[in-house]
Write a protein that binds this DNA or RNA. Structure first.
Ligand code: MN
Ligand code: MN
Ligand code: ZN
Ligand code: ZN
Lengths: 135, 135
DNA sequence: AAGGAGTTTAGAACAGTTCTAAATACTGCA
DNA sequence: TGCAGTATTTAGAACTGTTCTAAACTCCTT
């Protein structure tokens, strides 16, 4: 089952991060199920209610490090709060207001045609599509 | 010149807002040039360096009220800070990192095909396309 | 002109995030 | 296995953007 390796110690080491107890616990929560969207606060609650309490500062550190290492992607859809996304492949999002829930949808069935060229002196970095929906 | 009316007093009144000195000053800065993207902080600096100092709380109040009245649209592209957009029509954005600059592009030349249906129990509210570019 | 509701303001409060620096844990090497 | 050295964790302080509070002020109606 390649790509779904549950050897978090190895995976963290491969990302250049020491496999500390805290990082392994967070990686387990983040990566051992399917694709997830968490906030620092929600992950902190989750890791506390499991057997392994981790400080909020460490949750923030880990999320930022995982993102910098390419293990997570940061998603900004609402003011004041960042989401971290375990799905690092190309995809887009439904954002359900006012719940704050995010749902993925694959980008390969979506066609975006007619985008203008990037402004002078810039290179394209990423195209985000956010489909905002309401209950 | 309809739609470009510079009678801000009337325009505010039409939006259900009393045309106070502060709101008129802010409306002038926001709406009398072309399309703009401001933050509360940038607009506060601007209004202070003009003849009319307005408190930061009032800038926030006005931006939120103008948005609620449909005079502005709020754009969330970066963590920790909201942009307010005087262009309330359908359009999308280039976001230049790390500058934080926003540039409009019209949505009518862009075709987005193949979007999945909104999740059960939700209605489409808006589709935002953010083209992130780097220098 | 007066009354009353709406608005502004300074400063406090708040929420999310980052920083500090002291304690602790991991790793490589003896 | 033990040690030294570096990385990491942590509690709490600090910081940033935003909202709230409540007292002073202003706009509007009469
Ligand atoms: Mn960050
Ligand atoms: Mn707001
Ligand atoms: Zn996602
Ligand atoms: Zn715009």
């Amino acid at each position: 089952m390649p790509g779904t390796s549950h050897d978090f110690t190895a995976r963290l080491r491969a990302a250049g991060l020491r496999p500390t107890r805290q990082r392994v616990a967070l990686a387990r929560l983040l990566f051992e199920g399917g694709s997830r969207h968490v906030t620092a606060e929600s992950l902190h609650v989750e890791v506390k209610s499991a057997q392994m309490p981790v400080s909020l500062a460490t949750v923030y550190n880990a999320l930022n490090q995982f993102r910098d290492a390419g293990l997570l992607r940061e998603v900004v859809v609402a003011p004041g709060r960042s989401y971290f996304d375990t799905n690092t492949g190309h995809h887009h999002h439904f954002f359900v207001e006012p719940d704050g829930a995010l749902h993925d949808f694959p980008s390969d069935k979506v066609t975006i045609a007619g985008l203008p060229a990037p402004p002078k002196g810039t290179r394209l970095s990423r195209v985000d599509v956010i489909v905002r929906v309401r209950r």
